[in-house]
C-alpha cells in the first residue's frame, strides 16, 4: 500500500493522474453546483420569516464550511510535506491556499449581503463573522509568506510551519471569539438553525456543500499540475511538454 502510494509522489505520474481525474471531477462539480443552485433558487420553498433573501444560504453556507475544510486540508498537506519531505504534498498545499482565500472571501461577502436585509447592517462583530475574517488573514499570511521566498522548497516549508501553527490556533481563535461576542452582544441576532430546516431546503444545501467541495478539489488539481510544471522545469518530460505547447 505504502509503496503503491509512494509511486504517485513521482511528479510525472501525479501530473498525469491529476490530468486523468480532472475532467471527471470538473463534470461532477458543475453538475452538483448546477443542480444545487437551480434547486435552491427556483424550487426550494420560501422561508416564512426571511422571504426570498434566505436563498443566499445555498452559496453562503457551502462557502463558509468549505473554507474551514480547505484550511485543514492545506495544513495536513503541509504537515505531510514537512515531516516526510514529500514534495508533492508541499505543492498541493501551495495550490490550495489561494482557492481557500477566495472561498473565504465569498463566505464573507455573501454573509454580509445576507446580513444587510436581515440585520440592517453589512457587518456585525458576530463570532462567526469575526473568526471567518481571521481565517482570511491566516490564508493571506500563508500566501504572502509562500510568495516572498525565492527558493520555493524553503517557501513551502516556511508556509507549512505557519499553516500548522494556524491550525492549532483556529480552534482557540474560534472559541475565544465565540466567548467574546457572547459577553458583549445580546442574543438578538441568530442565523436560522439548521436542524429546523425542512428537507426541501436541506437537500439543495447539502448538494451545494458537496459540490463546493468537489469544485475545490478540481481547482486544486488544476493548480497542482501548474505547480508541478513550474517546480520541475529542468526535467526532460516537462521540457518535452513545453516544446509541444509552443509548437501548437
Amino acid at each position: 500500500m505504502w509503496k503503491w502510494l509512494n509511486s504517485y509522489a513521482d511528479p510525472e505520474r501525479s501530473y498525469n493522474l491529476a490530468g486523468k481525474l480532472l475532467p471527471w471531477l470538473a463534470c461532477l462539480a458543475i453538475a452538483l453546483i448546477g443542480v444545487g443552485t437551480t434547486w435552491g433558487l427556483l424550487f426550494a420553498p420560501t422561508d416564512y420569516q426571511q422571504g426570498e433573501s434566505y436563498r443566499i444560504i445555498f452559496i453562503h453556507v457551502p462557502a463558509a464550511s468549505m473554507s474551514m475544510m480547505a484550511y485543514v486540508s492545506m495544513a495536513i498537506a503541509s504537515f505531510i510535506g514537512l515531516v516526510w519531505q514529500i514534495k508533492a504534498a508541499d505543492w498541493a498545499a501551495a495550490s490550495i491556499a489561494p482557492i481557500g482565500a477566495v472561498i473565504t472571501f465569498i463566505a464573507l461577502v455573501t454573509g454580509s449581503t445576507w446580513g444587510k436585509p436581515m440585520w440592517g447592517t453589512w457587518w456585525v462583530w458576530d463570532a462567526r463573522l469575526t473568526s471567518e475574517l481571521v481565517l482570511l488573514f491566516l490564508y493571506l499570511g500563508v500566501i504572502a509568506l509562500y510568495a516572498s521566498f525565492e527558493d520555493k522548497v524553503l517557501a513551502a516549508r516556511a508556509a507549512g510551519i505557519l499553516a500548522i501553527v494556524g491550525v492549532i490556533n483556529v480552534p482557540i481563535i474560534k472559541y475565544s471569539v465565540d466567548w467574546w461576542s457572547s459577553l458583549h452582544q445580546p442574543a438578538t441576532i441568530k442565523i436560522t438553525e439548521k436542524s429546523s430546516m425542512p428537507m426541501e431546503m436541506l437537500m439543495p444545501l447539502l448538494i451545494n456543500i458537496f459540490g463546493f467541495g468537489v469544485m475545490i478539489a478540481t481547482i486544486t488539481l488544476v493548480r497542482y499540475r501548474t505547480e508541478v510544471l513550474a517546480r520541475n522545469g529542468m526535467r526532460p518530460w516537462v521540457r518535452a511538454l513545453a516544446t509541444k505547447e509552443v509548437a501548437k
Binding site: T37, L41, T46, G51, E52, S53, R55, I56, I59, H60, A63, V102, F105, I106, V109, T110, T113, W114, K116, P117
Partner: peptide
Amino acid sequence: MGGYAFYVWLAYGITFSS
C-alpha cells in the same frame, strides 16, 4: 426575489464572478 433582488443577485454575482 420578493423585494430582495439586489442582495440575492449581488451575492450570487460576486460568488460566481470571483
